[in-house]
């Protein structure tokens, strides 16, 4: 075997290993059997109707969506501003400041979860929506920054400088010159943040109290009993994630072509 074939084989096997467990959930969710089984004995949509008919699942979905919407929007706002400031200003100790913002992405999530649990317990934010939004925002900021750092660094500072000399304030320059060109990047950053929030389970489990999000509900269900409803939820989540990320990628690609 040539090295080329070896590399290819390893790549395909790895990809299969990563993707098969995800893919296998999809046919299982359309199964007519009353317990999880593969291959499915027949096709039906009973687990989807069980999902949409369950008030627990529907309310968890609504909580997840509201939480993801608010925290990804806040994360986008704060993360973009942090990214712009770190890219454009000469700041002392910017390495330390930047690592501080990125920490939630790099630290083991369980550490952030415990830290937030202790801090929120002290100030009475445990089990509140505000607490959840704050925690998710902290977790999402680094994802936004990763996308926006690239965008701001590759953005020609001279466009901003020329705009200033022509009399435009910093704010007008952002609104009229910078942001219209970075729309696709902002959208992509927002989608990454939204998906990540929708997917988050560790920190949420620690601080959510009685609030139930989709992943948290999945986790609790798995502990109690293994219902095939979960395969329907998983399939919906996969479809949602793939569609969002594909949409974001497509928009980013198109923006590169037009500029």
């Amino acid at each position: 075997m040539t090295p080329n074939y070896a590399v290819r084989t390893v790549a395909i096997v790895t990809l299969g290993f990563l993707i098969l467990p995800v893919i296998i959930v999809i046919p299982m969710s359309f199964s007519s059997a009353s317990s999880m089984s593969f291959p499915p004995p027949g096709l039906s949509l009973r687990w989807y109707s069980s999902f949409f008919g369950s008030s627990v699942w529907v309310s968890a979905t609504i909580t997840s969506a509201v939480l993801a919407l608010i925290s990804s929007t806040l994360g986008l706002l704060l993360g973009s501003m942090a990214s712009y400031g770190l890219c454009r200003r000469r700041i002392m100790q910017r390495g330390i400041i930047e690592s501080n913002f990125m920490a939630p992405m790099i630290l083991p999530t369980i550490i952030t979860a415990v830290a937030l649990y202790i801090a929120f317990a002290k100030i009475g934010l445990l089990g509140t929506l505000i607490g959840l939004v704050m925690a998710h925002t902290i977790l999402l900021v680094p994802y936004v920054m990763v996308v926006m750092n690239v965008a701001f660094r590759s953005f020609d500072l001279r466009q901003e400088q020329v705009s200033w000399t022509m009399g435009a304030s910093w704010y007008t320059t952002m609104r009229r010159v910078v942001l219209p060109q970075l729309g696709p990047n902002l959208f992509a950053a927002w989608v990454f943040a939204f998906v990540h929030s929708f997917d988050e389970v560790v920190v949420t489990s620690f601080i959510a109290g009685t609030y139930n999000t989709v992943p948290k509900q999945m986790f609790s269900e798995l502990i109690l009993e293994i219902s095939p409803t979960i395969t329907a939820v998983a399939t919906l989540l996969i479809a949602f994630t793939v569609a969002s990320l594909a949409g974001a990628t497509l928009i980013m690609k198109r923006s590169v072509q037009t500029v």
Partner: peptide, 9 residues
């Protein structure tokens, strides 16, 4: 102000 790269929008 005019830059070498023009910095047109």
């Amino acid at each position: 102000l005019v830059f070498q790269s023009y910095a047109l929008f």
